[in-house]
């Protein structure tokens, strides 16, 4: 379980993270989404024990990252944004060193072999780290994070620099880890990947949480993203005029014979449809449009700008 409770991190007058609270239970993948400077890496660094928060608490498996930092760090695997390892060490040597550092005892060598095979690094075990491609370096970083079989994984931009095939493999691997009960928190700029991989998404902007929830449900938490697609039925001209004048409709666009309505916050689609039906302009067909994560993201950031 990864837990952040009212985390705040200040660097002088600048608040990099403000009042951030969330939990990642075992088996869940939480995607951390936000533009550069949103506070993603700062939060991950706090959760990794690298920095303490200015206020608030963070814990891994119940161990506070400030008061019981070593115990907490023993229970997490962390892949920093720009993972680096000593270039002169061979892959196997590096992992054995890290296994020792994480307190692995007799089973250390066997565990290293296990993660080497799991991440497809077996054939490269004798290769110097400095000679690895970006993709294999990321695998090595993930192998390092997984060595101690931690119940929590923190991955900062784990998919950056990977080719599409490697991304697919990485995603499958992370899903498998989550299936085995690992709590995973990862950050990414690649929205479709967050949407595809994460069970829940946390949108962060200017250090504040803008939204948190499953990608499909975020629309209900972010006002102004409710959209309806209507296929006009009887009396389309009147229906269109009615909708254009309705205070609950923000925009009306036509697309392939359909009307795409964007509703204002607080507008209930059922009531709008009832108004159309009462005027005798009931649509032939209607459906709710699930907002894409990209739209949610844009909206969340825009609402942040307005507040600022």
């Amino acid at each position: 379980m990864i837990r952040a409770d009212r985390l705040t991190k200040r660097f002088g007058p600048i608040a990099a993270v403000q009042d951030l609270s969330f939990e990642v239970p075992p088996g869940e993948i939480l995607g951390f989404l936000g533009p550069n400077g949103a506070g993603k890496s700062t939060t991950l660094r706090i959760l990794s024990g690298y920095w303490p928060p200015t206020s608030g608490r963070a814990s891994i498996d119940g161990f506070d990252l400030v008061r019981a930092s070593l115990a907490a760090r023993r229970r997490l695997g962390y892949l920093p944004e720009n993972f680096a390892a000593p270039p002169e060490l061979r892959v196997q040597e590096y992992l054995r060193f890290r296994a020792g550092l994480k307190g692995l005892g007799r089973g250390r060598r066997a565990r290293v072999e296990e993660v080497l095979e799991q991440l497809g690094l077996g054939p490269r075990r004798r290769q110097p780290v400095g000679a690895l491609s970006k993709g294999f370096r990321q695998r090595l970083g993930l192998a390092d994070a997984l060595l101690a079989k931690p119940p929590a994984l923190l991955l900062d931009e784990p998919l950056s620099g990977l080719d599409p095939l490697q991304r697919l493999e990485f995603r499958a691997f992370l899903r498998e880890q989550a299936r085995q009960g690992t709590a995973i928190l990862f950050s990414s700029h690649v929205l479709p990947e967050v949407e595809d991989l994460a069970d829940r998404v946390l949108v962060l902007h200017r250090g504040r949480m803008r939204a948190l929830g499953p990608p499909g449900e975020l629309a209900t938490r972010l006002p102004g993203l409710e959209r309806l697609a209507l296929r006009p039925g009887a009396r389309p001209a009147e229906a269109r005029a009615l909708l254009a004048a309705d205070p609950g409709v923000a925009t009306l666009e036509e697309s392939e014979g359909e009307w795409i309505l964007r509703l204002r916050p607080g507008t209930r689609p059922e009531e709008l449809l009832q108004r159309l039906a009462a005027a005798g302009c009931a649509p032939a067909e209607f459906r709710r449009l699930r907002p894409r994560l990209e739209e949610l993201f844009r909206e969340a950031l825009a609402s942040g700008e307005e507040e600022a």
Binding site: R45, S48, G49, Y50, L70, R73, R74, Y78, P80, N82, F83, A84, A85, P86, P87, R98, L101, K102, G103, D144
Partner: peptide, 14 residues
């Protein structure tokens, strides 16, 4: 310089 310090400082060692 190499960027390996962060990994070391977040490992379970004081």
């Amino acid at each position: 310089r190499l960027g390996t310090l962060e990994s070391l400082l977040t490992a379970p060692i004081g």
